[in-house]
């Protein structure tokens, strides 16, 4: 299926990606080609086939509900772009 300019802008917004106007036709062309490739899936009847969740049919392990991690906030925040008083700083969200 061919994607249009407005589709690309909507997908980029959902993905929180800034893309330039000039690049939109290229994205539209490439994404449409990829979706055309993916479309080959629809030729196969999969009714009644169980979707594969894990190749070895593994399930999530359970563990004791105990404390396993220690507080390493200061260590992890050393690589943050902006922090203050142990909090991550972002532009003001609420006026």
């Amino acid at each position: 299926m061919a994607l249009e300019r407005k589709d690309i802008k909507n997908i980029a917004h959902l993905a929180r990606l800034a893309i330039s106007e000039a690049d939109i036709p290229e994205y539209a062309r490439n994404l449409s080609n990829i979706l055309a490739l993916v479309e080959q899936m629809q030729a196969v009847d999969t009714s009644g086939v169980t979707p594969m969740a894990h190749p070895l049919d593994a399930v999530q392990r359970l563990r004791e509900d105990g404390v396993t991690e220690t507080d390493q906030r200061d260590h992890f925040q050393q690589i943050a772009p902006a922090v203050e008083d142990g909090l991550y700083l972002v532009p003001k969200v609420i006026e």
Partner: peptide, 27 residues
Amino acid sequence: RRIMVGTYALSAGYYDAYYLKAQQLRH
């Protein structure tokens, strides 16, 4: 590109046609 393809495949109304279908084919 791949983030956008994935976002599209998972966006509202497309999950069954793409991700679920792919997981069935994977089987």
